[in-house]
Amino acid sequence: MEHYDILIVGGGAAGISAAKSAKGKKVLLAEREEKLGGILLQCAHRGFGGDLSGMEYAATLTAGLDNVKVSLNTTVLSINCDKTALLSQKDSGRRKISFSRLILATGAMEIAAGALPIAGDRPKGVYTAGMMQKLVNCQGFAPDGPVVILGSGDIGLIMAAAIAKMDIPVTLVEKEAALGGMARNRRRLDGLSVDMVLNSTVAEIFGERELEAVLLSSGEKLPCKTLLVAVGLECDRKLIRKLENPEWLRLCGNCERVHPMIESVINDGTQAGEWACGI
């Protein structure tokens, strides 16, 4: 069985930063996609490390990983309490490895529409905002308008701006009395035509096959062809669910808590890498 001093699960900003700071150790960085960068790779908007897009920033981040073994297209299927992990790699299949320290950098998962108390039909046209972000920025997809976005956190705001820029009618629905997210993301809406409904939420969905409209809790019915759910993220810790906080494990980045800023993710990852080297 191959042995590594440090196994890092997840090659997003946190995992990459952890790998870079784990100097002098035998490190394996496992990333399920074909490229390192994680969620940065679907961020076309600017504001990373100054004025870079997420995609550009990911490229700068991955520089300097020369001493780290990076295993792309590799999903970690399980982590066991005997410090072994089962990996599944696209072309080589499954293999088990052992490690001394584990850094979990699996990020966060969007809360899907299914988990929300929204009644009515279950037509096509309902997506999470992040899935739409990937469709738009990586697949050249344009959503059918009008679009309703539920939730005005950072992802909701970023997608509202991106869709408005495509000249597709978009309405943001926010349950609080004011928009959420960071000020710099709220500013993205300046000068764009985005309708806003505050103090409201989506109560019911209409459309047997294709989405036709959503009914808001305020009683207003908004015709739409696309609904993006942007109500929040939850830390993805499925892999360590059965482990009881072993001393060889550390979480970093968005799987530990959701960080609004990339700098904070990188800092967290760097510290995790140092921790793994230090003990």
């Binding site: 998962m109 969007e110 899907a112 988990a115 899935m131």
Partner: peptide, 10 residues
């Protein structure tokens, strides 16, 4: 599963 396809449908 939990993500209801949002991570794999594409």
């Amino acid at each position: 599963g939990r993500c209801q396809g949002s991570r794999c449908e594409i």
